[in-house]
Nucleic acid binder design. Structure first.
Lengths: 219, 219
DNA sequence: ACAAAAGTGTTGAGAGTACACCCATGC
DNA sequence: GCATGGGTGTACTCTCAACACTTTTGT
């Protein structure tokens, strides 16, 4: 390295706000901190960025390690670097938002000595560092993206019923959505495709159609 | 500091894409690099973040030093951290977008040994590092914000004519805008206020009204 | 038969877009 | 008086929101 910096350097972490839908509620993945600081409290999954990788690589690593998932949609959210946000010193966090279908997740859980849990968005425990603010910011981003993109599909399996998709939107936006208008909007947007198959769910009523993503631009 | 990190740390810089309107064209502030790497080529204004400050403080410093302006609107854009983006090693940049009225600017210029210049957006020189990509990303952000916010006002002096505001939008979006529809939209949005005064510009035609910001939420 | 769930169409309001002429002032 | 630039209104289209009944299937 032919040039040098006479500057002090921050530690760099990558954190992820991982959303999913469980029980028709929007939930966030949190890990229980074992070590100081904030030992015993809950925090966003994340970790240090290593030299030679970028923050999004680090997020990919974290998601694989702590949630056992690959090929997850995520994007950079914002960098949080207020002085004093970490009592250990100068620690800058590149926060990300990730969306996953909860069915695909296998939390690291007890076997990995990592205590990771889903928490409903409207009943979060106290969070370490400035993670509360990060989660709020992520929620706003998710909501605004949901309104003008097909991002909601990332929270569902590859095929899904129209009602499931609508419940995802309702859970994220925390508001009721008219069934007919929603159906029309989704079909006309071209984002989803009728697979022709129907779900035999054994419930009363006709068997609901199964839809799939149209594998186009999603971001 | 009771805790330590056994991790290598990146250098942290804060860069700014500073937009202005000059000659009815969208322009970007660039500085001529004196030292290696990329000596002699053009780059975004920016510098290292110091311990105890955050990236946005660093941007404020830069804007004061290199453009002689205070109280400038800016926001965080995105963090760029691809390995190899800086030949000196591991350097992470928190990029920002800033908007200023070019009349307020006093470029550092020759007296400060900093060679800073405005460049029209559609005729940029080759840029150092990944700054080309940062500028493109900033332009997209600016355009999308312009469509649904009053951010364009930041590019004008405190009072301005309706035509000036429209030319700002046209310069940023690179598209012609209908005069009447624009006028209606702006007035109805409540973002601007007729000051009652008119501009005596000595040109033919009636004296144009002068408008001012309504000092509300701008972000 | 009845209860539960899925599917579907119309109407009205508001936003946005296209479009042309008159008036004020300087020369 | 004429050339330049500022200022304004209407009609159409499209999007979005409100709103209820019929059909299918399980019990």
């Amino acid at each position: 390295m032919p040039y040098t910096y006479p500057y002090p350097r921050p530690a760099l972490t990558a954190d992820a706000v991982v959303f999913t839908i469980r029980g028709q509620r929007l939930q966030v993945l949190l890990v229980h901190r074992g070590g100081e600081p904030f030992a015993g409290s809950w925090a966003l999954p994340g970790g240090f960025v290593e030299e030679g990788e970028c923050a999004s690589d680090a997020v990919k690593r974290e998601l694989t390690e702590e949630a056992g998932v690959r090929d997850v949609w995520f994007e950079q959210l914002k960098t949080f670097d207020a002085p004093g946000r970490d009592p250990r010193g100068w620690v800058v966090s590149v926060a990300h938002v990730a969306l996953i279908d909860s069915e695909r997740v296998r939390l690291a859980g007890a076997d990995d000595a990592v205590d990771a849990r889903w928490w409903p968005m409207n009943a979060l425990p106290p969070l370490a560092f400035d993670h509360q603010a990060i989660v709020q910011y992520a929620l706003e981003r998710l909501r605004s993206k949901l309104r003008w993109s097909n991002i909601g599909l990332q929270l569902l399996p590859l095929v899904f019923t129209m009602d499931a998709l609508r419940r995802v939107h309702e859970a994220v936006l925390d508001d009721a959505i008219d069934k007919r208008n929603f159906h029309k909007r989704m079909v006309e947007s071209g984002a989803i495709r009728d697979t022709g198959a129907r779900l035999a769910n054994g419930k009363r009523g006709p068997q609901p159609r199964l839809y799939a993503f149209v594998p186009r631009t999603c971001e």
